[in-house]
Design a protein around this nucleic acid. Structure first.
Lengths: 349, 349
DNA sequence: TTGAAAGCGCTAACAA
DNA sequence: TTGTTAGCGCTTTCAA
């Protein structure tokens, strides 16, 4: 590693006996350069190891081909898969990524963050923080004077906003209806924390499915966890006490479902005959739980990809000067994956 | 959202009746400004909503207070926890993050990546890609003319490089010795892909622990997986065939251990009495497998934190003009977490 | 304590 | 096809 001085366009120009402009034309592949000039300049560029400064370009072009990403809960599986989709699609579309992680989920103090991105000339921002509690309240104040397009992940559809979400309500319904189809009629629910929009939606789906099937519903048939396996354990214990005869349970995520299965295993509750279990998320591990877990798969990777694609469209339009952008919404449908936690394996043929 | 023009230092200066210089002094908190001037300028800054352009600053200061992060395998638990550590520590130390994800693990075509970061004036780079196969070969060519400090994660210690790694060899030994202490004497191993440095190290730890204990060792006692639960399943099947009487197994990661447990559960092999199982990684779920999984915990979050701290030290020194930096190495020790997959639960007191 | 001049590395707009 | 001029938004240097 050495402290070499940057090679600038100026040095290339001098060395090749042309103006900086001409060098600029070469590196930007403009047509209006004589072939022999181009070649000479190219040669000097190679020889000197010249690389244009993206910073200087950003300054003059007032854009950086960079997207700001705000994320939260990177230590969980979901957000990191979303980020995975974001990185891959951004790469494909020729954008770089500036990343910031929020420490909590519920902050409304987003102005410094936004300013930080803007001062770095990001062309757009992906708000990859799920809607929790009042953590969208800042929208009213801050959004109006934001000078780049913004896209939100995992939140309630809202007029004027570009959003990519999974249909959690549908997922909740699918899970519950599947249990009903298996002949279960006493179906409990372990939800995520109910200040989370996703948790609310899934629970509502469960509720409506029960109502539609004319099954008995009671607030005591639902317990609240915090997504962690540990909390799932506690919630399940409560449900076992409060809902005697429960023969099916829809659990808000796979991690909590894992501990449900564990306890059932430990206590000798037969899955799926005595108790059928459906999870949510579709993490790869779920196929290797014992018994393998039926779950609602949500494609978080796709959420990330779609966010980038959509945002880039918005950015392009914005850069073209279209100031009144039509917001774009995408709702991704989840998918039911049936495994042995709800359906006994067929006897081998 | 509106296409408002940026407020510049120039406008603030004009409005406050001072030079741009003075405004610059105010926003940088320089002492040499008269209190009343400072106040007047501050007021104008607030009123106009002026935010300095980090881009312009980076251009003139030749640094950006930004760190470039190269990562791979974001969809796996490990890398995303490392990234989590990186984001939090970077935030704390006042640095931003430019993120790139590598598609594969074994590429040596890193020049474009490096140039991309350098053209954006990153102050340093974190290479958060584990050592796999020959994917460090580029070091010889590229490293010499890199103009910023670089730190590597998860690789063999190498002269002249700054590195943060977990002691995988030690982890392998700890796992195996723990099994031996439980009275197991026929201990198999399911490794990760053996072109991974981490997988090699863990396996070597297993081997050496067996040799030290004078236990029989044979290449057939080890099977190779690819970290996925599915591959663990296959590897375990092979081991069951090839190593009759095996009563302990050290599995290269928790995901593969999960399927080992699952198959054992399914086939009626009693854990831990007939077969004791140790995993590696210490993912939170492992506590909720059935039976709960004994595992070697590696603190990937800490790896990320340490990487940032160390890199920032290097950056500071570098910026001070110290061109011959002493490389810094950190080896993090893993930790044995004992659960019921190796040790029968005590009868309740 | 303040300001003027120069310039970071590049490109847009125009002229030649 | 090429070059000149101006300037993106800021800080450094030096002089006042």
């Amino acid at each position: 590693m050495s402290q070499k001085k940057r090679v600038t366009i100026h040095q290339v120009a001098k060395e090749a006996n042309v103006s900086r402009q001409t060098v600029s034309r070469v590196i930007n592949n403009r047509p209006d350069v004589a072939p022999e000039t181009r070649e000479r300049v190219q040669e000097v560029i190679e020889r000197l190891g010249y690389r244009p400064s993206a910073i200087a370009r950003s300054l003059i072009q007032q854009r950086s081909y960079t997207i700001g990403v705000v994320i939260a809960g990177l230590k969980f599986v979901g957000p990191s898969r979303t980020l995975n989709g974001i990185t891959e699609m951004a790469e494909e579309m020729g954008y770089g990524l500036l990343l910031k992680e929020l420490l909590g989920f519920t902050t409304n103090d987003v102005d410094p963050l936004l300013q930080w991105f803007l001062s770095r000339q990001v062309d757009g921002i992906i708000w990859a923080v799920p809607e929790v509690g009042e953590n969208r309240d800042w929208l009213q104040d801050q959004l109006p004077d934001l000078s780049v397009p913004l896209i939100f992940l995992t939140m309630q559809v809202q007029k004027g906003l570009s959003i990519v979400s999974v249909d959690n309500y549908l997922g909740g319904r699918m899970a519950t209806e599947h249990l009903i189809e298996q002949g279960k009629d006493k179906i409990g629910h372990i939800s995520g924390p109910l200040d989370w929009w996703e948790a609310q939606q899934r629970k509502q789906g469960w509720l409506d499915a029960l109502l539609d099937a004319n099954l008995r519903v009671d607030e005591k048939f639902a317990a609240e966890g915090n997504w962690s396996s540990r909390s799932g354990e506690q919630a399940f214990q409560r449900l076992l006490d409060d809902y005697p005869g429960m023969n099916g349970v829809f659990v808000g995520n796979d991690q909590m479902a894992l501990s449900v299965i564990q306890i059932a295993c430990r206590d000798g509750i037969k899955i799926p005959d005595e108790l059928a279990v459906v999870g949510f998320d579709g993490i790869p591990d779920a196929a290797y739980y014992w018994p393998p877990l039926t779950t609602i798969y949500q494609d978080q990777y796709k959420v990330g990809c779609t966010a980038v694609q959509t945002l880039v469209e918005l950015i392009e339009a914005w850069q073209r000067g279209e100031t009144d952008l039509e917001p774009k919404m995408t709702i991704i449908e989840p998918e039911l994956i049936v495994r042995e936690s709800t359906k006994s394996v067929q006897p081998a043929g």
